[in-house]
Design a binder for these strands. Structure first.
Length: 553
RNA sequence: GGCCCUAUGGAGAAGCGGCUUAACUCAUUGCCCUCUCAAGGCAACAUUCACGGGUUCGAAUCCCGUUAGGGUCACCA
């Protein structure tokens, strides 16, 4: 008769350590009362997801405001789906958003007392825990093949029973230890399953920081905890790692709620206290049929954080927007704090909405405009240039052609009480400011400019000639405008719109028309920033050159 | 389909039994300002809180049911 202990030794002959050894190696953290230890545990299977950024933002916030620790653990137990280099990428993207872990997997190194923080390097630790479960009779080797599993499943479907490996269906549960031992010794492949003692008829009360207390059926599935490749599954790795890394609060997406009973039973079986849980609502999007669905990396460009980076959104704006989703009172707070430093905002799980918010790009744009408007000349230049160097060659070229000129463009109506708020990102900058550049202007077709049709070519030329010869840029904006008015009046335009409307026959148009003719000639567009500043940035010479070009056609 | 979660306007939401003829923010629309635009200022935008029932003198708020949406049911996390 092979005992549990003997079986455990047959399966893991090399494992000499015990749980007690691990307890000593990874002792409780010495933190002040109330300090939270949180973690972000991504798997290296792709780029940073917007939902993951959301989760890690909350993790960072909770740890920081409680005086605790935030660490990153790489969950790379799925070797098939792993994408090389994505772990480093994840960390560097988090850093762009100023989310920097205190310890853990940092991309190129690991830092901290609870190392290793990469699951594939923790295989020995999991084996110690699994060996313990084997000894306790709470785990057993399973030799079922995929086809046997499929067979069980279809049988269950036919009988309209809950699918899975449990109860009477858990064939390998009923093997004797002798049989197990001989099959293992014979080299048969196997996985190790957890032996559940639960019953799904019975309910357990669970407590969640965002959802409160609710009831859920006990777990009764004999889930796989040790895969045939020698690595644990998520459920078991979560239990072991969060115990030995001394996580106090597990913050993760709502999709994990349904596996909570498994985790709770696992912690019980190990004789450990489970951490607190906070299951965050998932960020959603409306699909073409009008249904909500989880932001999908494959379907939605907004699902990848890189999308915002590539488009040149300020990182702060995304963070603020996400914080708004997390705690809607943040909005009021950040308004009161003039969109500056959100560090002092007190995040609270209880104020979190329970429903998944629809991602609202319009609101992101709003925050982005506010943030960009706050930047001074140097800051906006640096941000734009850093962005351009990394993501936008076209903009990079424009900036490098004449950095000073670019800075002046970006500085139009900027450093003042009510700055212009017309940029939300840098991605569309070439398109927005292209007309400032000689080369771009000269490429435009000046023969089809959108002048008001009520003006003949002659009138337009008359206006432009007068403006070229008489409009001075040497004075302040007020005198410049007065100057333009004088010129307009002399040519038969009304000094303001009211006057013109009162007596339209008496005038060729109003001063607005004069400005429009100038604006279109100089920018090729009907809309532009304040004309005075546009002209200042272009310089008198270039303005005249552009006017002359129009006059010559 | 089973189980779990959720349900206030176009979007995010406040609201915690009477102070609510439902805050605030974004979006939208209109007006004002103005050389155009962006901004800014001022308005408008849910007679009602998914629906049905109940409890109560009184319900968006508590209870029950229904409906709808989401999540989950892997040797993936």
């Amino acid at each position: 008769m092979v005992s549990n202990l003997e079986l455990a030794n047959i399966i893991f002959p090399d494992v000499k350590e015990t749980l007690e050894d691990l307890e000593r190696r990874y002792p409780s953290r010495n933190l002040k009362e109330g300090a939270e230890v949180t973690r972000f545990a991504p798997s290296p299977t792709g780029f940073l997801h917007t939902g993951s950024l959301f989760t890690s933002l909350i993790c960072r916030k909770v740890a920081t405001q409680s005086g605790g620790v935030f660490y990153v653990r790489l969950e790379d137990t799925d070797t098939k789906r792993e994408i090389q280099g994505s772990g480093e990428q994840l960390l560097s993207q988090l850093k762009v958003f100023d989310i920097v872990p205190d310890e853990g997997y940092l991309g190129n190194e690991e830092k901290g007392e609870y190392a290793p923080y990469t699951q594939s390097k923790r295989a020995d630790i999991y084996r110690v825990a699994i060996k313990y479960l084997l000894e306790q009779g709470r785990a057993y080797p399973c030799f079922c093949s995929q086809s046997e599993l499929d067979e069980i499943r279809s049988k269950q479907e036919k009988m309209k029973l809950i699918p899975g490996y449990y109860g009477q269906f858990a064939k390998c549960r009923f093997l004797t230890n002798d049989e197990r031992a001989s099959r293992i010794l014979a080299g048969e492949p196997f996985v190790i399953r957890f032996k559940s003692t639960g019953n799904h008829i019975r309910k357990i009360k669970v407590n969640d920081l965002v959802h409160g207390t609710f009831e859920i059926a006990q777990n009764d599935q004999d889930i796989v905890i040790y895969k045939s490749d020698g690595l644990p599954t998520y459920h078991f790795a979560h239990c072991v790692d969060d115990h030995f890394m001394r996580t106090t609060t597990v913050i993760r997406g709502e999709e994990w709620i349904s596996s909570l009973p498994i985790h709770i039973e696992l912690f019980e079986a190990m004789g450990w206290k489970a951490p607190r849980y906070a299951h965050l609502p998932v960020i959603m999007k409306l699909d073409e049929k009008g249904n909500k669905r989880k932001l999908s990396k494959r379907l939605d460009s907004e699902a990848a954080v890189s999308y915002f980076l590539e488009d040149g959104y300020p990182a702060e704006a995304l963070i603020m927007y996400l914080m708004t989703i997390a705690n809607s009172n943040f909005e009021e707070w950040i308004f009161a704090h003039k969109f500056e430093h959100m560090e002092e905002f007190e995040f609270s799980f209880s104020k979190m909405s329970l429903e998944g918010a629809l991602f609202d790009i319009g609101k992101l744009n709003f925050f982005a405009r506010e943030i960009l408007a706050k930047k001074n000349k140097q800051e906006i230049f640096d941000m734009a240039y850093n962005y351009a160097k990394k993501y936008n060659p076209e903009l990079k070229e424009l900036i490098e052609k004449d950095p000073h000129f670019f800075a002046e463009i970006m500085n139009i109506e900027r450093e003042k009480e009510n700055p212009r708020k017309d940029y939300e990102k840098f991605g569309n900058l070439p398109e927005l400011i292209g007309f400032f550049y000689k080369e771009n202007y000269d490429q435009a077709d000046v023969s089809s400019l959108p002048f008001n049709e009520k003006f003949s070519k002659e009138v337009i030329k008359e206006v432009l000639t007068a403006l070229r010869d008489e409009l001075s840029l040497d004075n302040d904006e007020q005198s410049w405008f007065a100057n333009m008015k004088e010129i307009g009046i002399k040519l038969g335009f009304a000094a303001n719109n009211k006057e013109f409307k009162a007596n339209p026959e008496a005038f060729k148009g109003s001063i607005g028309d004069v400005a429009e003719i100038l604006r279109i000639s100089l920018t090729t567009k009907k809309n532009s920033p304040n004309l005075y500043y546009v002209m200042k940035v272009l310089g008198k010479e270039e303005c005249d050159r552009r006017i002359n070009k129009i006059l010559s056609i």
